[in-house]
Design a binder for these strands. Structure first.
Lengths: 87, 87
DNA sequence: TAAATAATTAGACAATTTTCTAATTATTTA
DNA sequence: TAAATAATTAGAAAATTGTCTAATTATTTA
């Protein structure tokens, strides 16, 4: 199980999460938004998946990535370690 | 201005934030809680300060560190980049 | 079934981060 | 004022992370 905080530490990965907030996207569509090689993006996607922040589903030759619905709750729980503030 | 996400990515630094939630502590007291050299802790404290997550005030030969009251709001704002959810 | 397309894996390299010891600065106390 | 204490700075080494190209796997289409 990967580290959520580490996953959130990289700006490319955070941008991917913001993109997936709008709609599901396959790996190629995601990679097209960055000036970076596809394998590098693939690596970032893997780290996000390890951290359970996104899910991946193969559809034909594509792999469609989705933001995990639980993502916000997870981060809120992490934050509660730092602050007791409710909500 | 340092990167808040990067600052939060390290477990030692997150533990320091949790400790400071309970009470203000000077650098020596903080270092005593870890099996790590004082300069290493000093480095972590500096990164937390850069990220504006803690403040430091010199009191005699000690330097007292405090959790910044704005810390939770700051992190919530960062989260809003990923989710539009209110609260 | 061969060629094309989408994505990942493998392996190497570069950049960044974490940690250390030794040295320095600032403050207090004997 | 000299010695002791608290903390940081400096500089180097080790570990981790991010990136690349080339190769591989899986799927679709001509």
């Amino acid at each position: 199980m990967g580290d959520v905080w580490k996953a959130l530490a990289d700006p490319t990965r955070r941008k991917i999460l913001v993109m997936l907030k709008k709609r599901d996207m396959n790996a190629g569509e995601i990679a097209a938004e960055f000036e970076m090689s596809k394998p590098s993006i693939s690596n970032h996607l893997n780290l996000l998946k390890q951290a359970d922040l996104v899910s991946a589903e193969k559809q034909g030759q594509n792999v469609v990535y989705s933001l995990k619905t639980s993502v916000i709750e997870d981060i809120m729980n992490l934050l509660s370690e730092i602050s007791d503030r409710k909500e």
